[in-house]
């Protein structure tokens, strides 16, 4: 019953990513194996340096920092998206695994949700 939740939209611009994260945390709370994959503009969730206080929002990086503690198995970052946004491993939160978005990756998961 492994679940992969794909976040492909940038943080702060709309709420869909937060809903995806809530879904992941809920699944994890019920001991379902769930991982998060960030592709496209969604890769920007993983930046270490975020300070959304001026726009009255909580840093998504702080939500994600606790993700593995709450049982989310993996935080996955798509290589192409990293390149596109000029990000390297050192710019990302700790514990993020860099991978490549393709059919083989998706084949590892029984349920795939793209939010």
């Amino acid at each position: 019953m492994s679940v992969l939740i794909i976040i492909d939209q940038a943080p702060y611009g709309n709420w869909s990513g937060r809903e995806a994260l809530d879904m992941a945390l809920s699944l994890a709370a019920f001991d379902q194996p769930v991982s998060l994959l960030f592709v496209g503009a969604g890769i920007n969730w993983l930046r270490k340096q975020q300070n959304p206080a001026p726009i009255q929002q909580k840093g998504v990086n702080r939500n994600l920092a606790g993700a593995t503690v709450f049982g989310i198995e993996e935080l996955l970052a798509d290589q192409d998206a990293l390149q596109r946004y000029g990000l390297g491993a050192e710019d990302l939160l700790d514990g993020v695994a860099i991978t490549h978005y393709d059919q083989d990756l998706l084949a590892n998961y029984l349920h795939v949700v793209c939010q």
Binding site: I6, V39, G40, A41, Y101, D102, Q103, A107, C114
Partner: peptide
Amino acid sequence: HPRFRLCLEAVG
């Protein structure tokens, strides 16, 4: 929509 391409890439 960006997810259009994301989907096509996933179709085996």
